[in-house]
Simulated scan of single mutants.
Amino acid sequence: MNFLYAAAPAAGQPSLVASLLPLIILFAIFYLLVILPQQRQAKKHKAMVAELKKGDKIVTTGGIIAEVAKNEEGFIKAKIADGVEVKIDKAAVARKLEVEK
């Protein structure tokens, strides 16, 4: 008869769903506050870099202000001074400068 007592579940044990619920809620909050905004920002940056055209002014992550000379597949040719053009990785473009008129 003792083996029947050992096989019975304990009365104070919470169910699997009840024990995982706080972890699921924590992950949902983390996703909404961290992951989703980061994905939106990356999508916005990718669209901005794809729309760059000749003559646009940009700022690189290194702080260099340059003018786009050509938008290529993975790189941007940028003019940083008269007669000086450099190839910049598209990921290194921080933002586009808006020219005030």
Rank of each mutant, 00 (worst) to 15 (best):
Ala94Ser: 11
Leu97Pro: 11
Lys44Pro: 03
Gln41Arg: 10
Ala10Cys: 10
Ala69Ile: 10
Arg95Ile: 05
Ile58Glu: 03
Lys96Ile: 06
Leu21Cys: 05
Ile88Trp: 08
Lys70Glu: 15
Pro9Asp: 06
Pro9Leu: 02
Ile24Thr: 12
Glu73Leu: 04
Thr61Met: 06
Ala91Lys: 11
Ala92Glu: 10
Ala47Arg: 13
Lys96Arg: 15
Lys57Asn: 01
Ala7Met: 07
Arg95Val: 06
Ala81Pro: 00
Ile88Thr: 15
Leu97Cys: 14
Ile24Gln: 09
Gln38Tyr: 08
Ser19Thr: 15
Gln39Thr: 01
Val93Lys: 01
Ala94Leu: 13
Lys70Gln: 13
Leu97Trp: 15
Gly83Asn: 11
Asp56Leu: 02
Glu98Arg: 14
Ala69Thr: 14
Ile29Asp: 03
Leu26Ser: 14
Lys57Thr: 00
Gln39Met: 07
Leu21Asn: 12
Lys87Asp: 11
Lys87Ser: 14
Lys79Ile: 05
Ala6Thr: 02
Ile24Gly: 04
Ala6Trp: 00
Ile29Lys: 00
Lys70Ile: 09
Ile25Thr: 07
Leu20Glu: 08
Ile76Leu: 06
Glu51His: 11
Leu33Ile: 10
Leu20Ile: 09
Val68Cys: 03
Gly74Glu: 13
Gln13Arg: 12
Val99His: 10
Ala92His: 06
Gly63Cys: 04
Ala92Gln: 11
Leu33Pro: 03
Thr60Tyr: 01
Asp82Gln: 14
Pro22Val: 11
Ile76Ala: 00
Val99Tyr: 06
Lys77Met: 10
Lys96His: 08
Ala92Asp: 13
Pro37Phe: 08
Val86Pro: 00
Asp82Glu: 15
Ala50Phe: 06
Gly83Pro: 00
Val99Pro: 05
Pro37Ala: 08
Ala7Arg: 04
Ala42Trp: 03
Tyr31Glu: 15
Lys54Arg: 07
Ala69Gln: 14
Met48Gln: 07
Lys101Ala: 12
Ile64Asn: 03
Thr61Ser: 03
Gln38Thr: 15
Thr61Glu: 10
Met1Lys: 12
Asp56Pro: 01
Ala7Cys: 04
Ala81Ser: 08
Val93Asn: 04
Pro9Lys: 06
Asp56Gln: 02
Asp82Ile: 12
Ile35Gln: 13
Ile64Lys: 05
Ala11Pro: 00
Leu23Met: 13
Val86Arg: 06
Leu32Val: 13
Pro37Ile: 09
Asp89Met: 04
Gln39Lys: 12
Ala10Tyr: 12
Lys53Met: 06
Leu97His: 15
Ala47Gly: 02
Phe27Gly: 05
Ala28Leu: 12
Ala69Tyr: 15
Ala78Asn: 03
Gln13Phe: 07
Met48Phe: 03
Ala81Glu: 09
Thr60Cys: 01
Ile29Phe: 07
Ala92Arg: 08
